[in-house]
Amino acid sequence: MPDMRFAPPPTVRVAEHPGGMNQVLARSFNERLIMSLLLQHEGMTRLQLGQESGLSAQTISVIVRALERDNLVSKGEAVRGRIGPPTTPISLNPNGAFSIGLHVDRHAIEASIINFVGEPVFQRRSSLAALDVQTVQDTLTGTVDALLSELGAEQKALIAGVGLTLPGRFEADRPEEQAILAHDFEEDLRAHTGFEVFIQNDITATASAETLFGQAKRIDDLLFCYVCEDLKPRLILGGRIYTGSTPQISICDSETWQRTHDAITSGAQDDDPAVRQWLGAVVEKLDTLVQSLGTFATVSELILSAPVPKSITDVLVSDLKLKVSAGLTVTGSQFGPNALAYGAATLPIHSRFTAETP
């Protein structure tokens, strides 16, 4: 059995009565295994797939034909070697499936559609007029409708599902925010769209996206951190995401963060006093976290994600490299400011098409 490096965390809940993509509603484990390998390695021959999966050549041929029939994989150009017949690489078809991601935050719904290889197709941000169940529900369905209006009939038929992510907590003393966490939005979305709906914590889903499509695609052990007003870590060991009672480490209060984020959105750079203060606080907290982690686990990679432009993330990465030990590789997430919606969009693909390790 191959070493699968991106086993998905279990989704919190899955809405029943799934719809959409009926032709690939339930794929066999072996088919999922082959698609998982193709997600890890772009362009593999039948021989390579057999070597990595342990499946027979006949089984590989049957699976590849089935996936071709469902338009989930495509053949590349034959490569002629020095010895033997030409070999043909097999790759996932980017347009073989699509997935919708929705992230609920205090101020807006962040949304994204990605294709089968994780490329963003459409992105959208819908502001919330109020933070209550009815407003969130109406904004979610309106945002999905707006996204679907961008797709043609053939693309809509290939929607693998809807991923929905929520923060691990809102303010404990605000009943309306706790009501949002308790409400069954996934059933609302299933009834509205007819698609299968997957729900997960926002940071866990984004860390999962990194292991599926991002910088952590071929990394076994790493620390993923999402930073805003809090530092939100996820430890990934052997390709599995460990959450447990993961702490949220405060960087600043919500009001300070909102002012800082508004300044960044308006074009402030790292020389802005508020931005510089936030960057310095993040670096100090991350350094402390890395040192604490070193007492019980060894990781060589740290991936940072934040709802800020790449220029600010790059400064954060550079500042942290000067602080932490030389043995730790620090990189920024490739998903950018819309990472949480991107993480949500990977949930249906992870759950429908990849092989989970035991």
Results as ranks from 00 to 15, higher is better:
Pro2Met: 12
Ala7Phe: 13
Pro8Ile: 14
Pro8Lys: 06
Pro10Phe: 11
Ala15Tyr: 05
Gly19Gln: 09
Gly20Leu: 09
Met21Pro: 06
Ser28Tyr: 05
Glu31Tyr: 06
Leu33Gln: 14
Ser36Trp: 01
Leu38Pro: 15
Glu42Pro: 09
Arg46Gln: 12
Glu52Asn: 14
Ser53Arg: 12
Leu55Trp: 10
Ile60Asp: 08
Ile60Tyr: 08
Arg65Trp: 01
Glu68Pro: 05
Glu68Ile: 09
Asp70Val: 13
Asn71Trp: 09
Val73Gln: 06
Ala78Cys: 03
Pro85Leu: 06
Ile90Asp: 01
Ile90Tyr: 03
Ser91Asp: 01
Ala97Val: 00
Ala97Asn: 13
Ser99Cys: 07
Gly101Asn: 05
Leu102Pro: 03
His103Leu: 00
His107Tyr: 09
Ala108Thr: 14
Ala111Trp: 00
Ile114Met: 02
Phe116Val: 00
Gly118Asn: 13
Glu119Cys: 10
Glu119Asp: 14
Glu119Ala: 13
Val121His: 08
Phe122Tyr: 15
Arg125Ile: 15
Ser127Asp: 12
Leu128Ser: 02
Ala129Gly: 02
Leu131Phe: 14
Asp132Met: 06
Val133His: 12
Val133Ile: 15
Thr135His: 07
Val136His: 11
Thr139Arg: 04
Thr141Ser: 04
Gly142Trp: 04
Thr143Cys: 08
Val144Lys: 06
Leu147Ser: 08
Ser149Tyr: 12
Gly152Met: 03
Glu154His: 09
Val162Arg: 02
Val162Ser: 00
Thr165Trp: 01
Thr165Met: 01
Gly168Ala: 12
Arg169Trp: 01
Phe170Asn: 07
Glu171Ile: 11
Ala172Val: 01
Asp173Val: 13
Arg174Asn: 14
Phe185Trp: 06
Phe185His: 02
Glu186Ala: 03
Thr193Cys: 05
Gln200Glu: 15
Ile203Gly: 08
Thr204Asp: 13
Ala205Gly: 06
Ser208His: 08
Phe213Leu: 12
Gly214Asp: 10
Gly214Phe: 07
Ala216His: 04
Ala216Tyr: 01
Arg218His: 13
Ile219Phe: 11
Cys225Met: 02
Tyr226Trp: 04
Pro233Lys: 10
Leu235Asp: 08
Ile236Cys: 04
Gly238Ser: 12
Ser245Thr: 09
Thr246Gly: 11
Thr246Arg: 07
Ser250Pro: 11
Thr256His: 10
Trp257His: 12
Gln258Lys: 14
Arg259Val: 00
Thr260Lys: 05
Thr260Gln: 01
Ile264Lys: 05
Thr265Trp: 09
Ala268Arg: 12
Val275Thr: 11
Gln277Ala: 13
Gln277Ser: 13
Val282Cys: 08
Glu284Pro: 00
Thr288Leu: 01
Thr288Asn: 08
Leu293Arg: 03
Gly294Asn: 13
Ala297Val: 08
Ala297Arg: 09
Val299Ile: 15
Ser300Ala: 06
Ile303Leu: 05
Ile303Ala: 07
Leu304Pro: 02
Ala306Arg: 10
Val308Gln: 11
Ile312Cys: 00
Ile312His: 07
Ser318Asn: 04
Asp319Tyr: 00
Lys321Pro: 04
Ser325Asn: 06
Ser325Ile: 07
Ala326Met: 04
Leu328Tyr: 02
Gln334Thr: 10
Phe335Ile: 01
Gly336Trp: 00
Ala341Ile: 11
Thr346His: 11
His350Glu: 15
Ser351Glu: 10
Ser351Pro: 06
Phe353Asn: 09
Ala355Val: 11
Thr357Asp: 15
